[in-house]
C-alpha cells in the first residue's frame, strides 16, 4: 500500500467499476428506474464524492457498488472481482474483508465499547489487528482517550470518528460512506471530513462518499454528479463554489 499521495496520474488504477448498472424498483405502473445503466470507474487512492438531488440514485449506486443491494442488470466489479452474482456468503466475506462502511447514523453497536466497535470487523473475521496500524488509526482519529467508552458516552462527532476508524482498521480496498456528516454539526463534520481526507492522502485509502453538501464534496478529489439515475457530470479538484455552481447548472438543466 502506498503511504504517500500519488502524483496526479494520467491513467488511474481502478478500485471499483460498474458496467451498465441498472436498478429498477417495483413493477408495471409503479416501476421506478433508480439507476438507468450507469458505467463508472472509481479510482483507487482517491476520495470520490457522489452528488445529486434527492431521488437521483446516488445512494442506490453506492449500495449496489458495495454489494448491499442487488442490481437489476449490469455488472459491478470490486478490483478484478465481479460481485454481481456472488453468493450471500461470499458477499458477506467480501464486505467483511475488502469493504469498509460508514453510515449516516447508527454506526455503532451500543453494547460494545469504542475499541470493540473499531475491532468488530476483524474480530468477526477472527483476525488479530496489526497493533501498529491500529495505534496509527486511533491516533489519526484522535480517540485514544475514549476507547473504553460506550457509544452513548460519546458525542455524535466522536461516534462518527469511531465509525471511520472501524472502516479503516481492516485496511479495506474501498470505503463507502453514506452521508457520513449528515447528522453532524459543522465542527464535527469538519473533523470527520478532515480525517477521511487524511486517510486518503496519508494512507492511500480509497473512499467513496455520497453527500449532498457541497462543502463536504470540496474535501474530495473528484465529484460524480447523478441525475435521474445517470451520471451527468464530473468535476475534478472541486471546491465548494465549483460544486455549487455545477449543481445549479444541473438543476437549471432539469428545469427545477
Amino acid at each position: 500500500m502506498m503511504s504517500a499521495a500519488p502524483s496526479p496520474p494520467t491513467t488511474f488504477e481502478v478500485a471499483a467499476r460498474t458496467e451498465g448498472l441498472t436498478k429498477i424498483y417495483g413493477k408495471g405502473d409503479a416501476q421506478v428506474v433508480a439507476l438507468g445503466g450507469v458505467s463508472v470507474d472509481i479510482h483507487a487512492h482517491e476520495f470520490t464524492a457522489i452528488m445529486g438531488p434527492s431521488g437521483s440514485g446516488k445512494s442506490t449506486l453506492m449500495h449496489c457498488a458495495a454489494g448491499l443491494d442487488e442490481a437489476t442488470s449490469g455488472k459491478v466489479f470490486l478490483g478484478d472481482v465481479e460481485i454481481t452474482g456472488l453468493k450471500e456468503n461470499d458477499l458477506t466475506r467480501l464486505r467483511r474483508d475488502r469493504i469498509g462502511f460508514i453510515f449516516q447514523a447508527f454506526n455503532l453497536i451500543p453494547t460494545l465499547t469504542a475499541k470493540e466497535n473499531i475491532l468488530l470487523p476483524l474480530s468477526i473475521a477472527g483476525r488479530e489487528p496489526d497493533p501498529e496500524w491500529f495505534a496509527r488509526v486511533i491516533d489519526t482519529v484522535g480517540l485514544s482517550e475514549r476507547l473504553g467508552h460506550r457509544p452513548t458516552e460519546l458525542s455524535g462527532g466522536q461516534q462518527q470518528r469511531v465509525a471511520c476508524a472501524r472502516a479503516l482498521v481492516s485496511r479495506p480496498a474501498i470505503i463507502f460512506a453514506d452521508e457520513p456528516t449528515g447528522n453532524l454539526d459543522s465542527k464535527s463534520s469538519r473533523e470527520v471530513l478532515e480525517f477521511l481526507r487524511r486517510s486518503v492522502t496519508e494512507f492511500g485509502q480509497t473512499i467513496v462518499m455520497v453527500t449532498h453538501d457541497p462543502s463536504a464534496a470540496s474535501y474530495t478529489d473528484r465529484v460524480l454528479f447523478l441525475a435521474d439515475g445517470r451520471v451527468v457530470d464530473e468535476l475534478r479538484e472541486p471546491t465548494a463554489e465549483t460544486v455549487l455552481e455545477r449543481m445549479g447548472r444541473l438543476d437549471g438543466a432539469r428545469g427545477v
Binding site: L68, T92, R93, F106, N107, I109, I124
Partner: peptide, 16 residues
C-alpha cells in the same frame, strides 16, 4: 433491527 443490519453490513455472516 438496525443493529443487526449494521453488523451484517460490516461482515457478520448469517451463521454468526
Amino acid at each position: 433491527t438496525r443493529e443487526i443490519g449494521l453488523l451484517r453490513a460490516v461482515g457478520l455472516s448469517r451463521r454468526q
